[in-house]
């Protein structure tokens, strides 16, 4: 039997990350789950064990705060005995109007979604480079494809993160290390609990997880999930400004 894949999930209590972890657990992989809430971590870990993961470790960690990230990352990697796949999934949506009025809140969101995320990504990339192979997958968003009045603060962090990942992918092109930027559309998760669901644009976290899984296996660098968001964003990106300005999105 092949050795179990060693997986590190940063933000393992995210609904999308959890669904992907279930796919991996069913294959008997080994996982280290990092997240900030120990009670949620224990619940997710029990589920993944019951589904067949060969080992599930947990680490309570405020990932949005990157202080001492290098040492913390080494500790994660040591506990797993090396990492084959890193998924970075945590993030916050923030309230656009609130962040316009309160720049402390704006800054906290920037720290979580951008600053800390690129630092963990850089550390993960360094680890995989040393190891000689592996995958870094990071969840960005279609919101990063064009700034819109309803969520440009969040969108900007995801745009910055996407460019960072693009650069990492460039750096590792032609090597056994792959870097994947995941751009989901609307996903029915706790992050969007306040929004009325239904309609063809809404995906389940299971669908997004399955897309992430395929993209990792195929060593893709950027995916839109579900796939049709690539077309939607192509159109939105190319809308002439006068038309774009009239849209209330």
């Amino acid at each position: 039997m092949a050795e179990a894949t060693r997986i590190l999930i940063l933000g393992a209590t995210s609904a999308i990350a959890e669904r992907w972890a279930r796919l991996r657990a069913a294959r008997g992989d080994r996982l280290l789950l990092a997240a900030r809430d120990p009670a949620k971590l224990a619940i997710v870990a029990d589920d993944l064990r019951a589904r067949g993961a060969s080992e599930v470790l947990t680490a309570e960690s405020d990932l949005g705060d990157a202080d001492g990230a290098a040492e913390r990352f080494s500790a994660f990697a040591d506990r797993l005995g090396g990492v084959d796949i890193v998924l970075l999934a945590y993030g916050v949506l923030g309230d656009q109007a609130d962040m316009q009025a309160n720049t402390d809140h704006l800054r906290a969101m920037l720290d979580t979604n951008f600053t800390s995320a690129v630092i963990w990504s850089e550390l993960a990339a360094g680890h995989l480079e040393q190891a000689g192979s592996g995958t870094l997958a990071v969840i960005a968003s279609v919101a990063g494809d064009r700034g819109r009045r309803t969520n440009y603060a969040y969108g900007a962090t995801k745009a910055g993160l996407s460019v960072y990942l693009e650069g990492l992918a460039h750096r590792f092109a032609g090597t056994p290390v792959s870097v994947l930027c995941v751009k989901p559309g609307f996903v029915d998760t706790p992050m969007t609990a306040h929004v009325a669901k239904g309609g063809p644009l809404w995906a389940t976290p299971d669908m997004v997880a399955a897309d992430i899984d395929r993209a990792i296996a195929r060593r893709r660098t950027v995916i839109y999930t579900p796939w049709f968001w690539r077309l939607i964003m192509l159109i939105i990106r190319h809308l002439p400004r006068p038309i774009f300005n009239r849209l209330n999105i």
């Binding site: 609904a15 619940i43 997710v44 029990d46 589920d47 019951a50 589904r51 706790p190």
Partner: peptide
């Protein structure tokens, strides 16, 4: 439906 985890099997 969001409470869909196994606890022990």
């Amino acid at each position: 439906t969001g409470l869909d985890r196994l606890i022990a099997f």
